[in-house]
Design a binder for these strands. Structure first.
Lengths: 284, 284
DNA sequence: AAGGTTTACGTTTTCCGTAAACATT
DNA sequence: AATGTTTACGGAAAACGTAAACCTT
């Protein structure tokens, strides 16, 4: 049987027109290429080129051979593509969440549990999360509700309760808790990537001027140095800590509480078993 | 890039289960096969097998690799099939005719015109001839009518007039010519492969007992040695000669005369140019 | 003369099979 | 002991590039 390199050579010759030019692009010598083709013809049992003393042109068989060779090479290319994709996926865990806080908690655990894996994490809206989990774009997805599907395993991960962080001089500070509507109309600091929470803010606080911060670090500095109210949550405070000199009031709106669920495909359950033992433990 | 032989080896291993068995069937040594796979894995950049000290089993990547390898090999196989088919067709001329006589005339000319070609000739019914010409089963077809099609070149080849060959004692011998119906009811010698003529005989002479002969040689001997009437034609007499001591009468039925046309695809016109120069000359 | 192809030839590389080591059943 | 895999090694085969020959434009 001929070999793939011979087919590559054949195609290269037709693409570059002459042996010499093709040889140059293939980084081999001209005689080597000449012999490669001779060998291919010998193996097939008939010539692929009409040979004049100083010119080679494809004959009828050659034309067909090139067409077929391209098909073989395409198939070979598909093979490496598919294998590389699989191999990459075997070493990557793509996590996506509807909100940032569960991600902050989960990513360190995943990293420690699978130290040889590359991990990516994203914040996406709920529909994208569901779709991405189904089509294997994401292996782990965090939703604010369990995903009812036979192929999906959902498991409760954590609850988040939003709070408002107010300067002590703020008129609402005396309350035990407040509703978002009570704050509406002020200027507030807000982190940009808050996932599905942003929808809540837009709905309940349409008149508020949000000072959107794209970096958590900057937000923290501004919150400490200014009198602007900002949001926080039980999870944020647990991981980042409280800001001193601030009054923390719970948001009383029903929607200011969320329960997050880790969702994975049943087919990858085995792979993530170890992970769940750890997340279960940590979520208690 | 990996090579085809490596894919063959990979597939062989999965088919025969173990390295040793596969190596045996591939007619190579076991270490050679072992290295071949190692090299494939090295080129891909990841292992395809889980290796125990004493056992190799495909891993996830390996399973996919085998699936893809089969596709590549299938494509390679298609390549040799198509090339071989083309190559064979380049050295073969398939002729088919609706009647034997034009074939007897044409085949020697084709043989002499294309001495390096393998030639096959068949007698088929008219519909088969048309279809076969279209789908390249036949390159040359002889029909009793021109084929009206833009892709087809038809050219008048010869005319055949049927005769009856009677023993001198036969009651019809005095006539200048006879109709087939006049002979109906007798026993007659008839060659088996007469193509579209047989339909005519069946229609016009339904009560005749045909003594079918499958060999031209035998038919000739019987015709010379017996008193049975038989058929002949201008073309037969021209190529085989007349039978002595027989009265030859033309058949007066309109259908006992046929004009034959050589039909080829326009696309093969160039190839058969030389042939037509000769057949035109000979048909005059 | 420039550009294209094939042949010749010596070197380098690769490839193969035997032998051996190692592990499992 | 039999079976299965990998490593080691030496000889054989092949593949490669340089050089040269040959041809056309």
């Amino acid at each position: 049987m001929f070999e793939i390199y011979q087919l590559e050579h054949l195609v290269a010759i037709t693409e570059y027109g002459t042996l010499s030019l093709a040889a140059e692009h293939l980084h081999i010598s001209q005689p080597t290429l000449s012999r490669s083709i001779q060998k291919l013809e010998e193996e097939l049992g008939f010539p692929l080129f009409d040979r004049l003393k100083n010119k080679m042109t494809l004959n009828e068989s050659g034309e067909l051979a090139v067409e077929c060779a391209r098909n073989v090479l395409k198939e070979a290319d598909i093979m490496v593509q598919r294998l590389n994709t699989l191999e990459r996926s075997r070493h990557t865990i793509n996590i996506a969440s509807c909100a940032p806080a569960p991600l902050w908690m989960l990513t360190p655990i995943v990293s420690r549990t699978f130290p040889n894996m590359t991990m990516s994490s994203e914040i996406r809206d709920i529909e994208e999360l569901k779709k991405g989990l189904m089509d294997d774009t994401y292996q782990i997805v965090i939703l604010p509700e369990p995903l009812e599907d036979n192929n999906i395993y959902s498991h409760k991960y954590c609850e988040e309760q939003l709070y408002v962080s107010l300067p002590p001089a703020h008129p609402l500070c005396g309350h035990k808790g407040i509703y978002m509507s009570e704050l509406d109309g002020e200027s507030m600091l807000l982190f940009s990537e808050i996932g599905f929470w942003s929808k809540l803010h837009k709905e309940k606080m349409p008149h508020t001027h949000f000072l959107i911060q794209h970096e958590a670090e900057t937000l923290d500095v501004l919150a400490r140095a200014s009198a602007f109210p900002s949001f926080t949550s039980n999870l944020v405070m647990k991981s980042v800590g409280k800001i001193p000199n601030r009054v923390i009031l719970p948001l009383l709106d029903e929607e200011a509480t969320a329960t997050f669920y880790i969702c994975i495909k049943q087919s990858s359950n085995k792979k993530f078993n170890l992970l769940f033992n750890r997340t279960k433990f940590l979520s208690q």
